[in-house]
Each structure stands twice: as C-alpha cells, then as structure tokens.
C-alpha cells in the first residue's frame, strides 16, 4: 500500500502547531468541499484532506503517525512493521470505511477488536457528476457508467471494486439536475443498508447551442438583405430543421422564439434564435461594385447617433 504524507496533504510543516493544522484544514475544507468546488476531483481531494485531519488534529493520533518516522514520502510502498498498528486510538466505523488502506493498516486493529460485529451502519451516499451531450439530454437514453466503490472486505479492510451501471437518462433532463439511484451508494457496514448514488447531470458545451434550463439558444447568422427585407430561413433545432420567418427590419441581437423547440418536458423549453447579421467579404469585383452602389444610393451614416 502507499504511504500517505498527511502533512503534505494539508500543506503544513511536520512541526506545525495544532492551531496551524486546524487553520490549514479549515481553509482546504472550504476550498475543496464537493458542494462548493468546481474541480472534478474535489470529492477525492476532500476525502484526503479529511483523512489527514482525522489523524493530525488529535495529538495522540498524530504522535502515532509521527512514530513511523519522517523518512517516508507520499506514494512510497508502505508495509507496517508488526506491532506498529496503534492500539489506543479510536475512529468511527464510518471513518474506517471512508479512509485509505494505509490509514486502516495504521489504526485498524483497535477498531476491529472494538466495534466489528456490533454496529450496523448505513453506507454513505455518493454523488457523481455525469457529463452528457445535449442531444442525449434531448432524446434521453441509456448510459453506461463505471464507478470505483470502496467496500469493506471480509478482513475488515477497505478495498476498491469496479461497478458498472446502466442508467436510464430521462429525456429533457437539464444541467445540474440529479438522478437518485436507491441503494447504489457505498455498501453498509455490518449488514447495514447501502447508501444511495446521486448522478448530477452536466451538459457538455455544444457547437451550436447554449442551454438555459430547458431553453436552448442558437445564434443564427443572416445576410443583411434577409434582415432588411425579411426572409424565410432554415434553422437547425435539436428536433430537426424548421423554417423561421425573419421579419423585415430585423437587427443583430434580435431574439425570436420557437415555442416548444427546446428540451422536452411539461412544459417543454423553447428554442431562442438570436439573429446575427453577417456581412459578406468584398473579395470579388461584383461584391465590391454592389457595396459601392449601396454606399452611393443609401446615404447611410451608422455613427449618426454619436454626432459625428
């Protein structure tokens, strides 16, 4: 198993005071709390910080950890010497199930002798982010996910198991919504019930659309004459191409709503088309002539409002 450098995890020196350790832990806990942090590995990081703090914040446990010596470094292969497991420190069953193999090898014996076979405990709930494409959110479907789940082996030590789940994604699911899978969280301790698994949907950025709730927004390029004279144009939506009437006298930034063309639901979202006038480059003689003719015949000063 890997040696864990708890001091490094909390970013403090080996001779840090208890106050320094507390301060470092509190700051990191706020920063990496999975409900606050945007980092993808926040959950893992938060667990490591908690494990380090569980040992270092208590002078007795810290002394037991320090007794291993300071020559170890993080990730190094670690095998406890016989008798190196600590007898007189106490951790809860929950902590034991949560924390690393290194941790339980160090502090495990007391816990096993003391509590195993007694306390039934429900497993932990787990929350996992699930990135999906917008098309998948629109259509719904089945998604296969793989999870590494900790479980307590027959020897009372935590180990990892890979679990594959096929989960139905309901059509119309939106960013940030959670799907609860009952009993798919961390296994219970001593025959306790399993925790639940929560999948938090994250909709991947899309080339054409942005999403706000159930509404999808699309920037639609139109030619100046389409904006000026009005036109019927094709618009790609998630459900397929639809025709949109651009009214005469439209301008860039104007929003047109295609009712019910967003993500499905009760009620479904809308597709919001934001017009963007795109000018053709004057790269040909023809195009140059057309621009010159417009300049001569329209007497248009786009900066009139600025008084120049």
């Amino acid at each position: 198993m890997e040696y864990k450098d708890y001091y490094k995890t909390l970013g403090v020196a080996r001779d840090a005071t208890q106050a320094e350790i507390k301060r470092a832990y509190r700051k990191l806990a706020r920063q990496y709390h999975p409900d606050v942090s945007q980092e993808t590995d926040a959950e893992v990081k938060f667990k490591e910080i908690n494990e380090a703090n569980a040992v270092l914040h208590d002078p007795e446990k810290r002394a037991a950890y320090d007794a291993l010596g300071s020559n170890w470094h993080a990730g190094q292969n670690f095998r406890p010497a016989p008798g190196e497991t600590h007898q007189n420190v106490h951790f809860s069953a929950e902590e034991m199930a949560e924390f690393s193999e290194f941790f339980s090898s160090l502090f495990g014996r007391e816990f096993r002798a003391d509590e195993q076979g007694r306390q039934r405990r429900r497993g932990q709930d787990q929350t996992v982010r699930l990135p999906i494409d917008l098309e998948e959110a629109y259509r719904g479907g089945t998604r296969q996910i793989r999870l590494d789940v900790p479980e307590l082996g027959a020897d009372g030590r935590p180990r990892m198991r890979t679990k594959t789940l096929n989960v139905r994604i309901p059509a119309g699911v939106t960013h940030g919504r959670q799907i609860r899978l009952s009993g798919q969280g961390t296994p219970g301790v001593n025959g306790g019930p399993e925790g639940d698994l929560y999948l938090e949907i994250e909709i991947n950025p899309h080339r054409l659309y942005s999403v706000e709730g159930k509404d999808i927004q699309l920037k639609l390029p139109i030619a100046p004459w389409e904006a000026a004279l009005g036109a019927s144009v094709s618009v790609p939506t998630l459900g397929g191409t639809v025709n949109l009437k651009v009214p005469a006298g439209s301008h860039s930034g104007q929003r047109l709503r295609l009712k019910g063309r967003g993500l499905p639901g009760e009620p479904p979202g809308d597709a919001i088309v934001v017009l963007e006038i795109v000018t053709p480059l004057a790269t040909t003689d023809d195009a140059k002539a057309a621009y010159r003719e417009m300049a001569e015949r329209l007497h248009f000063n786009p900066r009139a409002e600025m008084g120049v």
Partner: peptide, 28 residues
C-alpha cells in the same frame, strides 16, 4: 476487483417530484 452489471431506473430530482417531511429527513 470484481464486476457487476445492472440496468437501473433512477428517480429524477426535479420539479415534478414531491417528498414528505419524513422522506426528506431520510434522504438527507
């Protein structure tokens, strides 16, 4: 490492779901 495979129907936590006081207490 062992593997297991299951097909699952979850519950979507959206505006359409309602839970009681005691259900909520349990869920959190």
């Amino acid at each position: 490492m062992t593997q297991s495979e299951t097909r699952l129907e979850g519950i979507l936590l959206d505006e359409g779901l309602t839970v009681t006081f005691s259900e909520l207490t349990q869920l959190c």
